[in-house]
Write a protein that binds this DNA or RNA. Structure first.
Lengths: 379, 379
DNA sequence: ACTGTTAATTTTATTTGGTGAACAATATAA
DNA sequence: TTATATTGTTCACCAAATAAAATTAACAGT
């Protein structure tokens, strides 16, 4: 725990990188006297360390940076099987990582996570500081307090708390978070969207279509934590409702029924087409009408959903994480075009759509980032 | 201007109504000593006043309430012609009001507002305190700094600043705000949604379809201030795109082209039907297929838009302000039903849809509320 | 009428987080 | 060497909040 002044210093250094005391004074608006005391405290506690000198006229300034090895954080992703567990430093860099078998049974799961973390910490040795916290990305609904998992379909969990037992046996704070929320917060803190105060992220992965929003620099959860449920927004309407298979959620025309990898695979299979993104895009490029139609439908629906999102939310940026063949093929092109034709044209329009690669370790680093953010900013 | 401690006291008393010092201590978490000093300062400045005693065992407690007549605020709505101007007290109660001719020319407009406010202040006399600020609701885009109006179609304004001249001649802070934003903030502060931290509001009025969101207790403007543009979300798709007339924004299938009063009137006229909501709903009730179709289309599209909003935002409540015949007729019924069938069913679903009457003075009281909020909470 | 009890509010001395101004440190430029 | 520029520290002081003690204003029982 730090004081509010110390948190201000940590926040600035974390977002801007190494800076001198004088720069900190200018940025934070605090006085030189206060800054002198604050930085001394943080240096004493080994969270900060002095870096290189910057010479100019007058006394050279000493850059202060986060001491990367002063603490480390563990990130766990239950998103896939095998699951991933890794150790990051204070700057979000991965120190060590390993895979482990995903167990549905909470007790086994807790054991696996505990053992995994202990192994990684031992393995890292001197390269990592003491463990400062743990974050766990869970595919499912997680309570606002980041302890209880209300429900996870893949894990077959209902009101499971793996946080309390883990905190007890590891002796550090542990946080559970929805996987998409963990990912977006990680990218916001350390990754591609570093410090962008307003954006949305959509992830098209094996587990379905995930989505999360950063509004005003903070995660927007929604009243019941449902603000990321883009996969069940209606995009095939009204004509598609009859031809289209019902969604697992009970309604018809959901984005999930046409744009998810599962849906695309199933549609391709039905037509006797190959089911991998690469092969399907190749067939479409070669003129196969069925392949073209499937990709057109999927990309168009996703574009429609993004358009709804942009029109209602007005984020500064939307990032879609997507497999490379889709990004550069029909799917991506139709997605972009459909979005553009369904957003109100504005002269000063500066919103950007970014299609990017899905990072395998993103979920776990995001999870570690939750613990890091709590440590650095207390939020 | 007050200190941060004083703002905390004002915020609690404004949301909870009269409370004793001891209650304030419990609620704010400040100490008795601090509270004693803070309340004394506010009593000295006449912002608070002592109300009735509450007897129990021991020394009776003295309720402290806002001194309604210590300041007053002016609210101006340029939403309709004639425009409305009114005076409210610290509790949001209307003290006096009048209408004035809406002039497009900024100079005339400023003169009219200044004269109107001076007349109302004179007319109110002892019933109102000195003027503490002015809020102006403008149909159009207003900058985040609440001074410059980028663009208003109805007023034919482009980069007009009526705030600076008004501040100069009235000598109090003046704030311009988009009309829907003013309305929702007013309802949030004093009205039907008092203190609800998460909700959206849609207004179906003569000027088109307005929309605004309160997220986390604050107005959500969006990156470019476009978060309220629900009227250009696509709801008729894909089959309606060809049959449907293009929207004034340039694209097709916008909510505005089927659910706005203007669109409904125009469709009714085309079919030789009466154009008032009351008459149209009556025809539909009596079985007229055209009237039914028009109202079904309009209500269904609105329901679709609300469903998109709920699915992506997850607000705790959506309020639609609508004429009574529509609320109780086909429009309202179809709106509600369409919304429900296009939202992912959830067991713990507690989100509510409220259809309510449009208040004529809502825009202007909302505008006054902007100035009040700035005065009371400095935000 | 007096006395004790309870609870609200005020007073007093102290802590905490911050400030401005003077000063010490450490470089470059002449 | 000396002047100049700039960084960072020290010191005396202030504002906001606190804990604990004192004061006030009621009621209840003798």
């Amino acid at each position: 725990m730090f004081t509010s002044g110390q948190y201000r210093v940590l926040r600035t250094i974390s977002t801007l990188g190494p800076v001198s005391r004088t720069q900190l004074v200018e940025i934070t608006g605090l006085s030189k006297a206060t800054m002198s005391a604050l930085t001394r405290e943080l240096l004493d506690r080994n969270i900060l360390c002095e870096r290189e000198l910057v010479f100019g006229q007058g006394r050279p300034s000493i850059l202060l940076g986060l001491n990367a090895v002063s603490v480390c954080f563990a990130g766990v992703s239950m998103q896939s099987d095998p699951s991933i567990i890794l150790l990051t430093d204070l700057l979000g860099e991965i120190i060590a990582h390993k895979e482990f078998v995903r167990a549905s049974d909470p007790e086994t799961c807790i054991e696996n996570i505990e053992r995994g973390i202990r192994e990684l910490v031992a393995q890292a040795g001197d390269r990592a500081g003491p463990l400062g916290g743990v974050g766990i990305a869970i595919p499912g609904f997680v309570a606002r307090d980041r302890r209880l998992c209300y429900r996870s379909v893949v894990l077959e969990w209902r009101n499971v708390d793996i946080v309390t037992p883990l905190e007890k046996c590891l002796g550090v704070p542990v946080f559970a978070e929805n996987d998409a929320n963990a990912l977006i917060q990680g990218e916001h803190l350390f990754g591609i969207m570093r410090d962008c105060p307003d954006f949305s992220m959509i992830i098209v992965g094996d587990g379905g279509i995930g989505c999360a929003h950063i509004v005003d620099g903070k995660l927007h959860r929604g009243f019941q934590g449902g603000a990321g449920e883009i996969s069940h927004t209606t995009v095939v309407w009204p004509d598609g409702r009859e031809t289209n298979r019902p969604c697992s959620c009970g309604k018809r025309g959901c984005l999930d029924t046409v744009s998810s990898l599962r849906a695309i695979r199933s549609m391709a299979q039905q037509k006797g087409l190959p089911t991998t993104p690469l092969e399907l895009e190749r067939q479409a490029r070669e003129g196969n009408a069925d392949a073209l139609h499937i990709l057109h439908t999927a990309g168009g629906a996703m574009g429609m959903a993004v358009a709804q999102l942009v029109q209602l939310f007005d984020p500064s940026q939307v990032v879609v994480l997507l497999d490379q063949p889709f990004r550069e093929g029909v799917f991506g092109a139709v997605l972009r075009q459909t979005m553009e034709t369904h957003i109100m044209p504005r002269p000063d329009w500066e919103m950007t759509l970014d299609l990017r690669e899905t990072l395998g370790t993103g979920w776990a680093t995001g999870a570690a980032g939750i613990a890091t953010r709590q440590f650095l900013f207390s939020e």
